[in-house]
Write a protein that binds this DNA or RNA. Structure first.
Lengths: 138, 138
DNA sequence: ATGTATGCAAAACATTTGCACCTGG
DNA sequence: CCAGGTGCAAATGTTTTGCATACAT
């Protein structure tokens, strides 16, 4: 089935692309960095270059298969794009990432952009904090 | 007056620090990158290293004098911290940055963090789009 | 004087790109 | 076969760091 997605995006079905797609699908955290993907590939004995990981992830993003999130410190994570937009709650201690959607916020954002005369292309809302687990550990 | 702010932060009052503070105060765009500050310094004939610009800006951030915003592409901008929190509207064409505050959004964010059991430490909301000026230029 | 600050050059990251070789359709 | 894909190494852009020197107090 994934082969179809790749072909539709005009991408050849190659081993690296399939493997990376698989890793994204199985990632327990859903949000993984390019480095994470690369490490996982090496662990499974695949001989894929980090450059390819970046190239493939970028192509996937262009194809709409994947979403890229830029967090603080010039560090990005990728997640499978499952259609529904959402924002992120990021734990600054353990890196855990929760997702949420808030219709009210979405609406206000659209209104703010419109008021300012901006044609909104995208938006990112990240709430940083300490997750329940890390609070207990303290 | 600024000398006081520096001293209070435990920083010696040095020429580079004063100059950088001055540039931040006079920046027409309010939001400047380290590179911007560096270039402005060179233009005014000051002999300051880029490393110092980064060091000073980081110290200013720690001291609460300055806010750092991380935008997409591992690129950061700095602005004088004037107390009132605000979010950003960023033009993806010309880089123009507008500020806004929306009480409703702030409240919802706090609620979302609380519901998830997160102790919120910070949050960043950036709306990306095309500003009115760039729309006309099209 | 003495502990900080600074400039410079080198290092550290995260990401991208050039290029010769490989591979899917 | 041949365009597109890949690995590797080198380049990039941004930010940080090591170190010897210079400065504020």
């Amino acid at each position: 089935m994934d082969n179809q997605d790749l072909r539709k995006a005009g991408l050849k079905v190659t081993l690296p692309r399939l493997k990376i797609l698989e890793i994204l699908e199985r990632a327990p955290a859903r949000h993984v960095s390019a480095e994470d993907v690369y490490r996982t590939l090496l662990e499974s004995g695949e001989d894929v270059g980090l450059a390819t990981v970046y190239r493939v992830l970028t192509q996937f993003e262009t194809a709409g298969l994947v979403k890229r999130q830029n967090f603080e410190g010039g560090h990005s994570v990728f997640e499978l794009d499952q259609g529904e937009h959402h924002d992120h709650l990021v734990c600054v201690k353990c890196g855990r990432i929760d997702e949420f959607v808030d219709k009210t916020i979405e609406e206000r954002q659209a209104k703010i952009a419109a008021n300012a005369g901006f044609e909104m292309t995208d938006h990112s809302l990240n709430i940083y904090g300490i997750c329940p687990t890390c609070q207990k550990k303290k």
